[in-house]
Write a protein that binds this DNA or RNA. Sequence first.
DNA 1: TGGGGTGGTGCATTTTTTGCACCACTGTAG
DNA 2: CTACAGTGGTGCAAAAAATGCACCACCCCA
Lengths: 301, 301
Amino acid sequence: MHSNFLKYFDEVARQGSIRKAATVLNVSSTSVNRKILSIEKQLGVAVFDRTPEGVELTGIGSILLEHCRKTLHDYERTRVLIDDLRDLRTGHLKVETIDSVAFGILPQALHQFSQTFPDISISVTTALPDDVMKSVAEGSTDIGISFLLDLHPDVRVISEKSAPFGIIVRSDHPVAERNSVTIDDIASYRLVRTLDARGRNSIIDQVVSTITSPLSTHVFTNALIVAKQMILDNQGIGLYTKIGFIDEIEAGSLKFIPLVQEGLNDMRIGLLVSATHGIDPAKRHLCDVIGRALRMMRLDS
Amino acid sequence: MHSNFLKYFDEVARQGSIRKAATVLNVSSTSVNRKILSIEKQLGVAVFDRTPEGVELTGIGSILLEHCRKTLHDYERTRVLIDDLRDLRTGHLKVETIDSVAFGILPQALHQFSQTFPDISISVTTALPDDVMKSVAEGSTDIGISFLLDLHPDVRVISEKSAPFGIIVRSDHPVAERNSVTIDDIASYRLVRTLDARGRNSIIDQVVSTITSPLSTHVFTNALIVAKQMILDNQGIGLYTKIGFIDEIEAGSLKFIPLVQEGLNDMRIGLLVSATHGIDPAKRHLCDVIGRALRMMRLDS
DNA sequence: TGGGGTGGTGCATTTTTTGCACCACTGTAG
DNA sequence: CTACAGTGGTGCAAAAAATGCACCACCCCA
């Protein structure tokens, strides 16, 4: 697959001698020597200084070596991944997430994943932040996506992303043109909020217990998709992170305005796995894919 | 240098057809086809699904493709760097820095640089943050390292690093065991401070103009190395970022305790170049090397 | 049903790689 | 001063790999 020059070059640099390297590599020194000469001719510059005792890297040589080692190393990793995939291609993964993430980002990530592991089925359920944390901790869920509030000791955070809260409003709303708002600024507007089925408080109340102004809530719902419709219908404004509304914001129908409020603007979303259970290749890859999708987003403005 | 499989594979994936790719690559389809078959045999798994219209990547194929593209891209970059180096290998670079950076991190970075550009001489001078900024702006210095206080419009920040201020004390000092301190906590201890030769105020006074408690200074010096000796001699405690004391802290003779003080714990150190002057390969590389060394450091605890 | 598209293959040719034997050079031990 | 054991570099011939032509089997679509 890769030219054997990579290995040759690496070994010569390691040994400081063409002949010694050739011995280690089980080939004739002629072959190694000529490969190096050929590359030097190709580059138009020496990669080794010749000394009576052998060879030593030039400055340019070490740059090239860095590239070669990086390539070899990356190939090694890729190769292992492929080998694992070849053998291990069936199974099932459970993902539990806060509902906002289930829109936009997750479908895209799952699509990418299922191209690599077409025979691994995936289940996605939405839950409240604490419940996500709990089911990951007890091992009933493979991968969790949740706010990083109270970290459970049995949970490991694979990757995290800052996701400040802000106001979600229609583009023609009076506050849509502002760069930031405070809780006080929005006190006069009606709020659309999501609560879970059992009617417990939302994450916002957990963080901001003593709110300056009482917020008047107009619509309660247990599904983000309903909240979204309500906001689009001008039934009120939302108090969320940007992540569940990416599509509408990009399309221009909704706007996100950062909120200046201690505790809500340094919120973080994390990718969670059990600290006590192992990570097989498929799980690893799903984490990679979701993590990458998370990192790609701009959630702060 | 690299096997042509990389290009073949990349192009076939791009075109979705072996024959089309072969045309683009100016080789026979036989050759391309056989290379791919050979790799698939080597990996023991298909990288393309064959359809009546051509080929399309399998999951494993896209993983391999990612590796190949990464390799090709990195090679391209390496190649450009080498070509530049071959031609342009003499010259001089001026570096101006705040004194704390001149210890530990800079020597190491310069050593690495001079291995790549052995014939480029470097001068390093230390100066106050504002002076560094000024000489970079007016072009008399190629690369500056300084606190990011008042950004000059002609200065470009190549990379930056959070460097909060804290207390530097001997390991056996009373406050050495604390996790953090406030200005008030240290008001009773004598301070060792650095001032420039002309006796102007240090950076600390610029930021914290209204200090809660007047700090009693015991030793003034214009060289950080003197301050370091004074602290080691128990003549007082220091108020600095961690960066100039890395060696002693790792050796255990000094300790760094973060300071809780608005304006001083969100200080940032930046790598500065002129926004109006060009960046040649050597300068680029020196920036890379210093920037990498900067990022490697843990300055917050 | 035929024509144009696809990937795959047997065979001959060309190109590249490899290894042996040998050269030129250097530092060192006798 | 010489002999020797290292080093990298090279001419030549054998071995191996890559390439291209001509052709096959297959599929889709007019």
